Amino acid sequence: MNTALHEIDERTNLTATNKFELLLFKLGDAPGTHQRELFGINVFKIREILVMPTITAIANAPANVMGVANIRGQVITVINLPKVIGCTPKKELPILLVTEYARSTQAFAVEEVNEIVRLEWSQVIAAEGKGGNMVTSIARIDGNTEDSRLAQVLDVEQILRDVLPSATEAITPEKVGPKIKLPAGKMILAADDSPLARSMIEKELKTLDVPYVMTHTGLEAWKRIQSISDAAAAEGKTLQDKIALVLTDLEMPEMDGFTLTRNIKSDQRFKSVPVVIHSSLTGEANENHVKSVGADAFIAKFEAGELADTIRKALA
């Protein structure tokens, strides 16, 4: 037990140095090739790894849902991850990854689990524009070198939306409540590396009638904050006159949300700007660490009404 707690503490403390751990696995032959590519999921999202249990097929289930499994008394949906990605396994799917994402628990069948690697977020680059809509980023496993192995970090939010669209919440004026009135010239700065998450955040902010700037990584957001601050200073103003609130994800290439928040809160020029962390990385360890880096609030993805209420409270 002490060893397990030590490992949890150690992994949590990685966020203080812009590092994280990635579980690497394989799904079979990539489409049109005989290559078995590496894929990855943040270890913090993995609840457990199991030998494939008995699967109960569900009548009229979506094509990529294998059925459900009874795991420790909880009935969990099992998703055929190779089929979702388009890979062809060379053997049966013997391993199940049980994951926790944004208030939900689900399991992914995979062909093979390889290893856990410890990386810096600077080793991870955004995958947007490089083809494929189910990959948020690409990790250079062996460092930023030409011969490094590459692993594709999956956009589980997008996968879940595609496989189980009925679970996606509509964003409506009724859900988000009254519009938010910001002082003239102010806006919200948001950062998220998932195209799906960005589209949902943008729709919510538009429904709230809030001006915003959207960025794709923590590093991009940090650079934007600095440039906005410089422009404000040239006008005899401060960052607080321009940015009403920062809304950030945690997992992002180049710089994560923990580091972005720490940078903001440790800079005397910016520390009074409220920071709300909006993440699918739930759990007590993450929420406690969110508080330790100085964030003003934490909200799990994605519930439109709760997000709106959290933004209102942080602005107040």
Rank of each mutant, 00 (worst) to 15 (best):
V43R: 13
I41Y: 04
D9M: 14
L14K: 01
L14I: 05
A16G: 09
N18T: 01
G32P: 01
N42K: 04
L5S: 11
L5M: 06
F44E: 07
K26M: 13
G28R: 08
Q35V: 10
A4R: 10
L38A: 04
L24C: 08
K19R: 11
E10V: 06
N42S: 11
K19V: 06
R11P: 00
K19S: 13
P31F: 14
T17H: 15
D29E: 11
N42H: 06
T17E: 13
I41P: 03
G28K: 11
L38K: 11
Q35W: 12
L14Y: 06
T33M: 00
H34C: 10
G28D: 01
H34R: 02
K45N: 08
F20T: 04
A30K: 04
G32C: 05
E21Y: 10
I8Y: 04
K26I: 00
P31M: 09
A4S: 06
L23E: 02
G32D: 01
F44I: 09
F25H: 03
F20V: 05
D9I: 15
L5P: 00
L23C: 04
T15C: 15
F39V: 01
E21G: 14
T15W: 10
A4T: 06
E7R: 09
P31C: 06
K45E: 12
L38V: 13
A30N: 01
F20M: 10
K26T: 15
T33K: 02
T33R: 03
H34Q: 03
F20C: 05
R11M: 11
L27Q: 02
R36H: 11
E37I: 14
Q35I: 13
I46E: 10
R36C: 07
F44N: 04
L38Q: 03
P31Y: 15
G40Q: 06
A4M: 07
R11C: 07
H6E: 08
I41K: 10
Q35S: 03
F39D: 00
A16P: 07
L23W: 05
V43P: 03
R11S: 12
E7Q: 02
L27D: 00
L22W: 08
D29C: 13
F39M: 06
D29Y: 07
H34M: 09
R11F: 07
A30L: 07
T15A: 11
E21A: 08
K26W: 05
D29I: 08
F44P: 02
F39L: 12
L24P: 03
L24N: 02
R36M: 07
F20N: 11
L5W: 13
L14E: 07
P31I: 06
A4C: 02
A16H: 10
F20Q: 14
G32N: 03
G40W: 10
V43T: 07
A16K: 15
I8A: 05
D29R: 05
F44R: 08
Q35F: 11
T15K: 14
I41F: 05
K26L: 14
V43H: 15
A4W: 03
K45H: 04
A16R: 10
R36N: 07
V43D: 10
T33W: 03
E37H: 06
G40D: 09
D9P: 02
F25K: 08
G32K: 12
H34T: 04
T33Y: 00
G28S: 08
H6S: 12
I8T: 08
A4D: 00
T17D: 03
L24F: 15
L27S: 08
L27C: 13
A30D: 01
L24G: 11
V43F: 15
I8K: 09
